[in-house]
Design a protein around this nucleic acid. Structure first.
Lengths: 153, 153
DNA sequence: TTTCCTGCAAAAGGTTTGCATGAGC
DNA sequence: GCTCATGCAAACCTTTTGCAGGAAA
């Protein structure tokens, strides 16, 4: 590991964190970029990416694991799991059930030397909205596929 | 969902599945491409990608969720979880502890209408090799960062 | 005043797609 | 024979990087 640089709380970083708290959860870099841009019109996407990386090293945010092409990020608000709708892409937070917490092994079977730093539980399935609408759902606001940055004007 | 086309077991698909069983687990598309190419020298990377997508729809393989940039794939061999080493990128399979299985909720708290189709547990931490070597490990064979396809000759 | 950060633009790199040809069934 | 799958090459899109100027501390 590197000799650890010091961390400056720039205006860009403050606003990135503020917007992450304000907007709907689990934005990807572009959604966040659009939100931040409304307050800092000259910020660049590269800055957003760089800062998400750094903020996640520092523990302010975390990267959500996904099988898709875009990364999504989470403001760190204590332990919780995720439920992914495989039809519309929505991700929902789940509070950690204490019983699960107690049972999940500290040392996974057969990996004596592995030091667990984080355990994640991810549910995959069909969310309520998709189930009620069927498979051709179009409830725009609740579903999300890949998201692009809005075009420069 | 589409009207469901019929699925042909082409030589390419057979060999992709055979190689996935043979090689070390969780290859990404390039590693798999290289393995398959030794038996089908003219196969294209696009075919590998297309087939991984289709084979995962059909349930023969599954996509591993990751926070990295590359997708990794798993031949479907019953329920198991993964331990990810955040230092070297190695992914190891963990057998499912029955106690965990029993406790993980069928319906996650607060999501009454969600139908769970799959539950994944992912451990993140430091693997034995990295812990014993320290943070500047170089045990080539056991660690993997991003992997590139071998250059065309 | 030193170091870290930003914006811009360009590159990188993984994945997807269009199209003409070829292989399953 | 009718589809579906393949190979090739080019496009796509997200993420990363180099660099010169600017802001924290």
């Amino acid at each position: 590991m590197q000799p650890e640089k010091d961390f400056r709380l720039t205006r860009q970083r403050q606003i990135i964190l503020e917007e992450m708290r304000r907007m709907r959860p689990h934005p990807n870099a572009c959604e966040l970029y659009d939100a931040v841009k409304s307050r800092l019109p000259h910020i660049s996407l590269a800055t957003v990416y760089r800062n998400l990386e750094i903020l996640s090293e520092k523990g302010f945010v975390r990267k959500i694991i996904t099988s898709g092409r875009q990364k999504r990020f989470d403001i760190n608000a204590g332990a919780h799991y995720h439920a992914h709708c495989i039809l519309c892409g929505t991700i929902v937070d789940i509070p950690v059930a204490t019983e699960v917490m107690r049972v999940l092994p500290e040392k996974p079977d057969g990996l004596e030397n592995f030091r667990v730093m984080e355990t994640r539980v991810e549910f995959f399935g069909h969310c309520g909205a998709c189930r009620s609408i069927g498979t051709t759902a179009e409830d725009e606001d609740s579903r999300r596929g890949p998201v692009r940055c809005s075009p420069a004007e």
